[in-house]
Write a protein that binds this DNA or RNA. Structure first.
Length: 277
DNA sequence: AAATGTCCCAACCGCCCCGAG
DNA sequence: GCTCGGGGCGGTTGGGACATT
């Protein structure tokens, strides 16, 4: 199953890099760049596979890498971003200049995970679901696939919520009908719960899940965006047409470069009219 | 001082995505 | 539309460093 690892080819070296190898790789990239990692080791005269070269460069040799211990600020940032993004290390690394995804992943597993275990539940329950975050979450593409959430309809009337993601751009209550912050893991959990209980697919989320509440304005439209967040938008099933959902997912795609994410999760009930996007 | 346990992190592995042909 | 290959990502591991007994 899967492709044969490139390093399994005869004669290619594995394991720790020597200073000589590092020097060869740095010199070659400085002079020639790295347009083709697969061809690079051959051209540079390294007995390594391209993947190994790429990892060595991106995780260790790149000139813009910041070495040394993580600062308290960096750790806090990682914790915060991990709450929002889950195990998307590359996305977290993109917001920490000079740090690599590998490094952040290591710090998380060796320090921060333990640190978080010592937190009192009440300290983070405002913004963070108690849903299992250690479970292996789906990829972004999986969680962005909203179709699973747009088909079922056998639910009772739902109480209306107005929820704002902590890092959302400024949104007035008149701009929002109902918004819930979720991340990949939470979204997966919701999917699981939906599968487990076909007669009631609404997620079972306790009040600690919700972020700050705002007042409702039933006549206004649903429009929400969260930076570094996944957003669950709720609106009445009766308002939903394929066209509307398409419009929403289209707007998601338009925003992807800026790391805005939307997820559509439809609930039935007495909720505002779906807007024109 | 030696043995054992634990921590840490660089590197590897397997899978996925996406573009080219 | 399909296949293939390169690049990227997240999970895991091997082994050295350090701490404890």
């Amino acid at each position: 199953m899967g492709r044969v690892p490139c390093c399994d080819k005869m004669g290619l070296k594995k394991g720790p890099w020597t200073p000589q190898e590092d020097h060869i790789l740095i010199s070659f990239i400085q002079n020639n760049g790295h347009s083709n990692w697969r061809a690079l080791p051959k051209l540079a005269g390294l007995l390594r596979c391209g993947k190994s070269c790429r990892l060595r460069w991106t995780n260790y040799l790149r000139p813009d890498i910041k070495r040394g211990n993580f600062t308290k600020e960096e750790e806090d940032t990682i914790i915060q971003l991990h709450e929002n993004l889950g195990n998307r290390w590359s996305a977290i690394a993109a917001r920490l200049p000079g740090r690599t995804d590998n490094e952040i992943k290591n710090v998380w597993h060796t320090h921060l995970k333990k640190k978080l275990k010592n937190y009192q539940p009440s300290q983070n329950s405002k913004r963070h679901s108690k849903i299992n975050h250690d479970a292996k979450g789906p990829t972004t593409s999986e969680s962005s696939n909203n179709s699973d959430f747009c088909t079922s309809s056998s639910t009772k009337s739902q109480k209306q919520h107005i929820k704002i993601a902590p890092n959302s751009p400024q949104l007035s209550s008149s701009e929002i009908s109902a918004v819930t912050l979720v991340d990949d893991h939470q979204m997966m959990k919701i999917k699981e719960e939906k599968i487990e209980s076909s007669s009631d697919y609404l997620p079972k989320i306790d009040e600690s899940f919700w972020t700050d509440e705002l007042s409702a304005d039933n006549n206004n439209y649903v429009m929400a965006a969260g930076h570094d967040q996944e957003i669950q938008v709720q609106f009445p099933l009766s308002s939903v047409t394929e066209e509307n959902v398409d419009k929403f997912t289209t707007s998601t795609k338009m925003e992807e470069d800026m790391d805005f994410w939307y997820n559509v999760f439809i609930k039935t009930g007495d909720l505002p009219e779906l807007p024109e996007f």
